[in-house]
Amino acid sequence: MPVLAMRDHRPAAGMRLLVRFGSVGIVATILYAALAAFFARSEWIGLAPVEASFAAYAAAALFSYLAHKSFTFMSAGPHRSEAPRFLLLTLTGLAVAYAAPSLLTVNLGLPFVVPVLVTCVVIPALNLLVLDRWVFPERRRQDDGPV
């Protein structure tokens, strides 16, 4: 049975997991922003803004998958099962980011900041839970180890 850090009742192990998770998220966000700007502004590449954003998001998602697998969750599971699960989770996050503004601003008349905040809170929390329990359930070692 795999050892799941989130299920571990040791506060230090859970905190180390949160720090690693947050670190990967911050780096992926910076990578996305830098690549989107580069792809859109580069005369050599010169993508339209939507294409630049999509390409940057794909690159940041690939980085996230590899970093979460090897650093955050230290998974020993095979790519053939974990990569499709990660892709499904990523697409679910995109769907929420698309649907939340439509539902909360258009249908309920709330200010735009509400769906943005909901997305910023719900998606990372959902990702942490699903990555831990479903995408990367196999750990390489018993001890969660230091950050």
Results as ranks from 00 to 15, higher is better:
residue 47 L to G: 04
residue 29 T to Q: 05
residue 48 A to N: 10
residue 71 F to C: 02
residue 117 L to K: 09
residue 142 Q to K: 12
residue 17 L to V: 09
residue 21 F to Q: 00
residue 69 K to W: 01
residue 63 F to P: 04
residue 36 A to W: 06
residue 58 A to Y: 05
residue 61 A to R: 01
residue 132 D to H: 13
residue 86 F to G: 00
residue 32 Y to S: 06
residue 106 V to G: 08
residue 13 A to Y: 08
residue 128 L to I: 02
residue 28 A to D: 03
residue 27 V to E: 01
residue 16 R to S: 13
residue 50 V to R: 12
residue 145 G to I: 03
residue 134 W to K: 12
residue 120 C to K: 13
residue 9 H to A: 14
residue 43 E to M: 12
residue 139 R to G: 10
residue 114 V to T: 09
residue 137 P to F: 04
residue 93 G to E: 02
residue 116 V to F: 10
residue 35 L to I: 04
residue 88 L to P: 02
residue 135 V to K: 01
residue 46 G to Q: 10
residue 118 V to Q: 01
residue 11 P to V: 07
residue 50 V to S: 12
residue 90 T to L: 04
residue 90 T to E: 03
residue 74 M to Q: 15
residue 46 G to C: 10
residue 52 A to R: 03
residue 125 A to D: 05
residue 130 V to F: 04
residue 77 G to D: 05
residue 130 V to D: 02
residue 129 L to K: 07
residue 7 R to Y: 08
residue 15 M to N: 08
residue 131 L to P: 00
residue 30 I to G: 11
residue 51 E to T: 14
residue 17 L to R: 02
residue 106 V to L: 15
residue 135 V to H: 00
residue 78 P to N: 08
residue 43 E to D: 15
residue 8 D to H: 12
residue 20 R to G: 01
residue 72 T to E: 02
residue 30 I to L: 14
residue 17 L to A: 03
residue 131 L to G: 03
residue 99 A to V: 09
residue 30 I to V: 15
residue 88 L to W: 09
residue 20 R to W: 00
residue 8 D to Y: 07
residue 23 S to C: 14
residue 135 V to P: 01
residue 71 F to A: 01
residue 12 A to T: 13
residue 75 S to T: 06
residue 108 L to W: 13
residue 4 L to K: 11
residue 132 D to G: 14
residue 38 F to V: 07
residue 34 A to R: 07
